[in-house]
Design a protein around this nucleic acid. Structure first.
Lengths: 161, 161
DNA sequence: GGCAAGTTGAGCAGTATGCGCAGGGAGAGA
DNA sequence: TCTCTCCCTGCGCATACTGCTCAACTTGCC
């Protein structure tokens, strides 16, 4: 089912490194026929492995130089309501529902300390949020990455490619 | 400097919705000349606003159905060492250095409960990690998004576009 | 043996890309 | 007001890629 073979992984790695590569160029680099690459990409999309090529936006370059995380505790059974309110806050960039001490993990961005204060206030003021704990991201030693997982498959001996 | 005008924002929104659009098609949709779109994209890349079009990989479809977050407390002054060790763990997908109770926020993935146990153990066993607190992501009500921030600019009255 | 799936190499029409160039409009400064 | 610069526009060109189709070959499996 959710199996990715070596060629799939090599293709994804190639696209990770040079996302604007065309199908033809990929086929040349991988040493396979163009149709094969086309077919692989279609299948990867169908399986939900390759979900698209969203533009990666550097928020810092847009002025959103601050990133913060908040852990929210919320009233029992109010997760849907709270997330809806959070969705309406532009600066909220990501929300996960989690086990453990907190119920929601929120990532948000802001342009300045004052702006961050405003955003945090908006988040905290959401109804049914009972307790919050906020941390500012000082740096991001490891930005979001998938490469190592792909490399593991690409290095595998099984499968063609 | 880090200013994005309305046209830039509309272009980024367009690419967010349909990332594989070509320059020509973008120019048609935005009602501007092709050269303009080319120039805008180059400038956005130079400024670091548009950093690329990385393939978005559905980890769940690849078998990594579990996501977990860990907050690590580490020994004073050992951030570099710890992040280097974390970097070597394939399943660690993201690390932020934060203020507050914890020092590092780690996002990791795994294929099963047993696998997650192994990954967590690897993370926790990193030297200089003194205390950890782990949460499993049950769902992701708001996946990583930038759209609202772009829309805010696109809706603005200032600037051409 | 025979079927199904995947890969290959080829071809074709349509279309996009990178590049250059001349002209025009808007804003800054003398 | 004149001038300079920056940006957008519209055009054209040669090259290259895309989506699609086809027949033929390999592989694994019933």
């Amino acid at each position: 089912m959710g199996e990715i073979d070596r060629l799939d992984a090599r293709l994804l790695l190639l696209l990770t490194d040079e996302p604007r590569l065309g199908v033809l160029e990929c086929s040349r680099r991988l040493g396979v026929a163009r149709g094969t690459v086309q077919a692989r990409m279609e299948r990867l999309e169908q399986r939900g492995v390759l979900t698209g090529f969203p533009p990666e936006v550097g928020l810092a370059a847009m002025g959103y130089v601050l990133t913060a995380f908040a852990v929210l505790e919320i009233a029992q059974g109010k997760r849907a309501e709270v997330t809806e309110r959070l969705r309406a806050i532009d600066e909220v960039c990501e929300v996960h529902a989690t086990t453990g001490e907190g119920d929601l993990l929120v990532r948000m961005v802001a342009t300045s300390n004052a702006d961050l204060q405003r955003v945090i206030d908006e988040v905290v003021d959401v109804r049914w949020v009972s307790r919050t704990s906020t941390s500012i991201a000082l740096s991001t030693p490891i930005p979001s990455r998938v490469r190592p997982l792909l490399e593991k498959v690409a290095a595998n001996d099984e499968g063609p490619g």
